[in-house]
Simulated assay, not measured.
Amino acid sequence: MAHPQMFDDDDPVLARVREICLALPQASVKISHGRPAFFTKKVFTYYGGSIKVDGEWLSHDQSIMVLPDPDDAEALRQDPRAWVPGYLGPYGWLGIDIDLDADWDEVAELVTASYLLTAPAAARHELQQR
């Protein structure tokens, strides 16, 4: 069963996230479960996500879901913008709410950290050579 599209192609926040993600070596995008998923061999960033609150799914449409660097994960969990996504949270993933006023350098750092944890060695090497 196909999932309905849960994002707006014209979302300017998604455009910025797409630019950051697709600038990384060997990165591509696919739609997974109705949301953009940026990947090499494995997904390193999702745009948008949800969390179950009191039995209801609460959507975080303008957010990124990333696998944080283990050294930064605990501090990120304390950030008021952070949330533990359904399904991926038990595997260490975190959601971070963002908007057009986001610190885009920070967003790029979060995306890059997730990329470095999931990308193949050749892609990581290519990034380090830049």
Score class of each variant (00 low, 15 high):
Ser59Phe: 09
Val111Thr: 05
Phe39Met: 09
Met1Asn: 11
Asp103Arg: 14
Glu74Lys: 07
Ala75Lys: 10
Pro4Arg: 07
Pro25Ile: 09
Asp54Ala: 12
Val29Ala: 06
Tyr91Gly: 13
Ala102Phe: 00
Val66Gln: 09
Gln128Ala: 14
Asp11Ser: 11
Val66Pro: 02
Gln5Ser: 12
Asp103Asn: 12
Asp10Leu: 14
Gly92Ile: 04
Pro120Arg: 12
Ile20Thr: 07
Gly48Trp: 01
Ile64Trp: 06
Pro4Thr: 06
Trp104Met: 02
Lys52Ile: 14
Ala119Asn: 05
Ala102Asp: 08
Pro12Trp: 05
Gln5Tyr: 10
Asp71Phe: 15
Asp101Ser: 15
Arg16Ile: 13
Ala108Cys: 02
Thr118Phe: 03
Leu67Asp: 02
Gln62Leu: 06
Leu67Ser: 02
Leu58Pro: 09
Arg16Ala: 01
Tyr91Thr: 12
Asp105Ile: 06
Asp105Met: 02
Gln129Asp: 14
Gln128Asp: 14
Arg16Lys: 15
Gln5Leu: 03
Leu22Ile: 12
Glu109Tyr: 08
Trp104Asn: 05
Glu74Thr: 13
Gly55Met: 00
Phe7Gly: 03
Ala27Ile: 10
Gln26Lys: 15
Val53Ile: 10
Ala122Gly: 14
Gly55Asn: 00
Arg16Ser: 07
Lys30Ala: 03
Ile64Pro: 05
Arg81Ser: 05
Ser50Gly: 13
Glu126Pro: 01
Asp71Glu: 15
Arg124Thr: 12
Ser114Ala: 08
Phe39Val: 08
Ala121Glu: 15
His3Ile: 15
Gly92Pro: 02
Asp72His: 15
Ala119Cys: 13
Leu100Arg: 14
Phe38Asn: 07
